[in-house]
């Protein structure tokens, strides 16, 4: 394809798909900046690899497959390299997180003991109010905890495999998920299930 033709095709794809791709990425990353960056990267990668696109799949499918790889790569990076401030914060968060929930013997503090949730109303994910609460709670997680949560559910892979790709020990991974889950559970309880 001559270069000018490629540019025209790409431009029409940007017009047709960039909004959907942006929203999809925003939904996953919870960050406007990150979403814009990843969508831009995707089109750049597509532009450079256009020779490989032979029209065997829909352009939209092809673009989204590149995008999803970029999103997963983003979370792997975020998990591996929390910024310095972030990791400082984690040490604090970690200590106070466990201290919030457990006494010195490691048992639930009386007021923190989980009790059954009674609020249960069909499909929560159809409820915009609940989605708001969930997104708010996810946003409060430290960056690399959030990345760990995303990696666990995005790829539907066994834990060992995720850890192999990240080159980290499984122990480290599920300990981070443990902390993330404790915090997330509490947040959902306070903002939703207790109401």
């Amino acid at each position: 394809m001559p270069k000018s033709d490629t540019a025209i095709v790409m431009q029409s794809w940007v017009e047709a798909f960039s909004d959907k791709m942006y929203l999809w990425t925003l939904y996953k990353t919870n960050s406007k900046e990150t979403a814009e960056d990843l969508v831009q990267d995707t089109f750049l990668a597509a532009f450079q690899a256009i020779e490989k696109f032979e029209g065997k799949s829909e352009p939209k499918t092809w673009l989204f497959s590149i995008l999803n790889n970029k999103i997963a790569e983003h979370f792997r990076k975020a998990y591996r390299n929390p910024t310095i401030n972030e990791s400082d914060r984690n040490v604090d968060t970690e200590v106070s997180l466990f201290d919030t929930f457990f006494d010195s013997d490691g048992n639930w503090k009386k007021e923190q003991r989980p009790k059954e949730w009674h609020r249960d109303e069909g499909n929560l994910l159809d409820n915009a109010e609940f989605i708001n609460v969930l997104q708010g709670c996810l946003r409060k997680l430290p960056n690399n905890w959030f990345a760990a949560v995303q990696l666990k559910y995005i790829e539907k892979k066994r834990g060992e495999l995720i850890c192999q790709e990240l080159e980290i020990s499984p122990t480290n991974f599920w300990q981070i998920l443990h902390r993330a889950k404790l915090q997330l559970r509490k947040c959902l309880e306070v903002h939703w299930f207790k109401n």
Partner: peptide, 11 residues
């Protein structure tokens, strides 16, 4: 804005 940014990047 994003669309314009991407298109500028590509040309």
């Amino acid at each position: 804005e994003l669309k314009q940014k991407i298109i500028n990047n590509l040309s």
